[in-house]
Computed example of a mutant assay.
Amino acid sequence: MIALIRYRLLAALLLTALLAAPAWAHKPSDSYLTLEVKQGQVDGQWDIALRDLEMAIGLDQDGNGELTWNEVRARRDAIAAYALARLKLASAGKACPLRVTELLLDDHSDGAYAVLRLHAECGAAIAALDLDYRLLFDIDPQHKGLLQLRHGGQVSTAIFAPDSAHQALRVADASGWRQFGDYVRHGIWHIWIGFDHILFLLSLLLPAVLVYRDRRWQGRSTFRAAAFDVLKIVSAFTLAHSITLTLATLGMVALPSRLVESAIAASVVLAALNNLWPLFHGRRALVAFAFGLIHGFGFASVLLDLGLPKTALLLSLVGFNAGVEVGQIAIVALFLPLAFLVRNTALYRRGILGAGSCMIALLALAWLAERGLDVKLLA
């Protein structure tokens, strides 16, 4: 009975990931806010995804599923009103009224964005800036606002979420440890909602509690052997994506976004199919390293969209990568003991490993078609 309960718990975790994955097949919702403080005034730029604005206020006037510049421009006042109602600035207890001076369009790695040029007057020299950020939180609690605050030659960063919607930032002598902590948390969250990364890792980990012998999967004899196999896979994946995350974020290597996202989907397909027809059993760590190089470019897209100068970028890079590793460790710590306990059941071998890998492969094939052919298959 206890083993059955453990199996059901593990199966429920996998099923939850598979059911939630279509909604997170692509990069989660972020906006990019850059503010520059000069004496008593603030100038800035706010990049908000058109898909988010369409969801919030509606932009597609003819209902054909495609947004044009004319449709966006026609909704300029509505866009400005919606955005400004959800961002408030203050200094020394006095409000700094914001206004939109210009509306433009720009392309990010995950699609088109509205670019709002901002200006605010605070009336006196600004030593610290209070920000209240509420964009999209009422309709998308997973949304994040990524801030870059500039003053002279200094740059500080912050991440806004529903539980950190109000923040006070010094415009000088910014805390490096605070920025580091922000990006650790963002890295943890990114791996937890990056279902393509999670399913790739899980596809490689599912056989870790088994051995392929006499043309069938059998349970490993010791937890130590399973843990060592997991350690090799996770270490290889971590080393590989850390290399390309660093190179891509520092601008030393660049690959087209569509190629990276398609290759990530293909890696999930291959890892899942290997559980059904073992082709590289015993070499899964090498596969984790090879495809981990591609996944690193996917992680880097989050930081690249911030456009941070290298001084702040190095700090955010280390924090973000540390957060990704913490997130991975949490996933492994939850998965491995449960999987080991039910490894000898037919339900694990045929249900979770067999049927689960089939579901993962089919889902990843849909992602591959969407990303490679630019078609919409999943809601």
Results as ranks from 00 to 15, higher is better:
G296Y: 10
G296E: 13
G296W: 12
G296A: 09
G296N: 11
G296V: 13
G296Q: 14
G296K: 08
G296T: 15
F297R: 02
F297S: 04
F297Y: 13
F297T: 11
G298V: 01
G298Y: 00
G298N: 02
G298H: 00
F299E: 04
F299V: 00
F299Q: 02
F299T: 01
A300Y: 08
A300I: 01
A300V: 01
A300H: 06
S301T: 04
S301L: 03
S301Q: 07
V302S: 13
V302G: 06
V302E: 02
V302K: 05
V302P: 00
L303C: 12
L303H: 10
L303A: 09
L303K: 11
L304S: 11
L304V: 15
L304R: 15
L304C: 11
L304W: 00
D305T: 13
D305W: 01
D305H: 10
D305S: 14
D305Q: 12
L306D: 04
L306M: 15
L306Q: 13
L306P: 08
L306W: 09
L306A: 08
L306E: 06
L306H: 09
L306Y: 06
G307T: 04
G307Q: 11
G307M: 05
G307C: 12
L308V: 01
L308C: 04
L308D: 03
L308M: 08
L308Q: 06
L308K: 07
L308P: 00
L308F: 03
P309A: 07
P309Q: 04
K310F: 10
K310H: 09
K310R: 14
K310V: 12
T311S: 15
T311H: 10
T311R: 12
T311D: 15
A312W: 02
A312Y: 02
A312N: 09
A312L: 08
A312E: 07
A312D: 04
A312P: 03
A312H: 03
L313N: 05
L313I: 03
L313T: 14
L313A: 14
L313W: 01
L313E: 08
L314S: 13
L314G: 13
L314I: 15
L314P: 00
L314A: 14
L315G: 15
L315M: 10
L315F: 01
L315A: 05
S316R: 03
S316F: 01
S316I: 02
S316D: 09
L317K: 12
L317S: 06
L317A: 09
L317M: 05
V318Y: 00
V318S: 05
V318D: 00
V318M: 02
G319C: 05
G319R: 03
G319H: 08
G319K: 03
G319Y: 02
G319V: 07
G319M: 05
F320E: 03
F320W: 08
F320V: 14
F320I: 14
N321L: 02
N321E: 05
N321C: 06
A322Y: 02
A322S: 15
A322W: 04
A322P: 06
A322E: 02
A322C: 13
A322Q: 04
G323H: 10
G323W: 09
V324G: 13
V324S: 11
V324C: 12
V324T: 14
V324F: 12
V324R: 08
V324E: 12
E325K: 09
E325N: 12
E325Q: 13
E325Y: 10
E325G: 07
E325F: 06
